[in-house]
Design a binder for these strands. Sequence first.
DNA 1: GCTGAAATTTGTCTAGG
DNA 2: CCTAGACAAATTTCAGC
Lengths: 176, 176
Amino acid sequence: MSQQETDGIQQNTSKHRPLDVMDRKILGAMAQDATRSYADLGKEVGLSAPAVHERVKRLRQTGAIQRTMAQLNGAAIGKNFLAFIHVESAGWGKTKEVIDLGELPEVEEIHTITGDSALILKVRVENAQAMEGFLWRLYHKTGVRSTHTYVVLSTHVERGVQAEITKDLSVGDHLT
Amino acid sequence: MSQQETDGIQQNTSKHRPLDVMDRKILGAMAQDATRSYADLGKEVGLSAPAVHERVKRLRQTGAIQRTMAQLNGAAIGKNFLAFIHVESAGWGKTKEVIDLGELPEVEEIHTITGDSALILKVRVENAQAMEGFLWRLYHKTGVRSTHTYVVLSTHVERGVQAEITKDLSVGDHLT
DNA sequence: GCTGAAATTTGTCTAGG
DNA sequence: CCTAGACAAATTTCAGC
């Protein structure tokens, strides 16, 4: 049932209608559990199953839902070593080699955090030795000026993008 | 279910059996696309649909698969501001209030990185103003000594735990 | 633990209101 | 967007190996 059908050459040129409350409810539910049936979701948000199905299909096409994935337990598959690695690059355009490391399965995230010369990597490997090997390889990339590794000892929260939005006026209050 | 079979292969059915190659293939496929049918997965790994189903059910029960979720596009739901926040705590046991922030939907990750006094938070909000509000609230938690925020400008890789394991001998090589 | 077949539940599309 | 129907396809169970 993989939805990799021939969509044609349609890019993401959707009308970008802002998501209504129903869409957000559906996204919120599916971000936590994507195994629920459309009928079940419909009962929660107050829609029929076909209506939910159509919305979910649209949410996938527009990219609001990037994919549906199984979240694995790192320890269960023998990956007991997680670290965040800060990388300082020599300058502009020098990060390409590092970003190419994203093809490796141990790299879970790569973010640019300052201009084009600083990166944050999230890397999960089996053990300390494997991490040392990765750092060795990382440091020998051209353009890598320095790295700083933060080893994770305990993970308290780890989840994807949440649909709910917190209205926070604590700062704005004193501005208005 | 008989404990001892008379075949030549001794299966470890008493405890958490280490994942075999079939399990890893299934996990690897589902970590990237959990919408595929069991029959489809079975054709890839060489099992029947019921066999895959049984393994997936076991992988869920044992926690190897924590959940299957929809990965949302932050920008699509109006969350265009992502940051990693390093928090230094005053000392042991002072991080509870910060960890309790994990209930907020803008907090995607909380990791302890050093002893019990340093944390990394991954926070995604609508805009800079919302981030300011979050930081304001964070900084006023008891035990928070200082915070350092790294604003993400571009995300190149963002995915969950990958089942594949890279054999890396690059460090051991030069030691031998 | 796996297979193949059967039974049940969902997914998916269509038509009409 | 709902209801309703119908068909395809998936999930889930089960006997038997």
